[in-house]
Amino acid sequence: MVSIVNRIIKQIFHDKRSLALILVVPLLLLTLMYLLLGKSSYITTVAVYDISPQIKEALCEQEIVKVIEKDSTNSDQDYIKNGDADAVIYFASDGIHITMLEMDNVKMSAVTNAVKDAISSINPAGKLNISFVYGTSNGTTFDLLGYLLLSILSFFMIFIISGISFVRERTSDTLERLMRTPVKTISIVCGYICGFGFFAVIQSTLMILFSKFVLKMQFVGQWWIATVIMLLIAIIAVMLGILISVLSKSEFQVVQFIPIIIVPQIFFSGLIPVDTLPYHLSYLSHIMPLYYGCMGLKGVLIKGSNFIEIFPYIFALIIFIVILFISNLLAVRKYRTI
């Protein structure tokens, strides 16, 4: 087993691209998502008309919007299409009318928050006071979804590299040669898990430390529990990679499995809140290891759960590991007549 672990580590170190894919690319993608989903300095422009001076003044005090007077005779739609403003607001007897170009979460929440706050500053009793059990209302989308990114990235990278590496072992006939040596099937599977596990440990630790100290992601719980969960996710990714490559004849066929194996898991990872899904589709999440991984990570990073509270998720991941381990043994044994 040690020689297989040794070999995998050497192979990855010789292949600088794979090494970068495991260690550098996740950090780059995290940074990119941080920049995309983090705090936006964009000031939304709001054009107003038919508005009481008192409300207009209150609106002007809101820092997230820039208020201008709509001074053209164009319709509201054309005015926005021209790019003169992001939103047009007017007050009528049947309420406040807001016209915007399209459903844009960032601009929409800026406008509605500004209007809401402006009105409540005039009439404090109408103020909405929203608080959350976990997290704060001023957290960014990145704070909210960062944990998903950690597990999805780690799962995806390790799956690709281990799957391709094992399918290569088959297409290049090295597996046949390996099977002619006295090495045990279980050592091959364990060797693969430990070899890629080695990189998974480095990767998860790097990603966690990077998001905590560089990107300052909201981090309520203990980072080592998060690392353990990410490691379990990576082990599942290695074994899923081996299983898929047994069913594939070429590297391309491994890639063909991504839309079937990886993409649905991302959908069910918590990106869309699972408990609001229609048609009892939420049951599907129970067969997806990434769901448990993401829920566990959410528990640690956002809810600050301790190890005991997270244990059910860890236990579920371990069950997946056991099932995959047995199927891997059976799959690899297929290449041996003994």
Partner: peptide, 27 residues
Amino acid sequence: LGYMPQNDALYNDLTAVENLAFFGRLY
């Protein structure tokens, strides 16, 4: 048994010595 398959059956991302050492240890 010593077996040499028709395809080369080598690890392209290892050196010659590393290939030999790997199989040597497995034997």
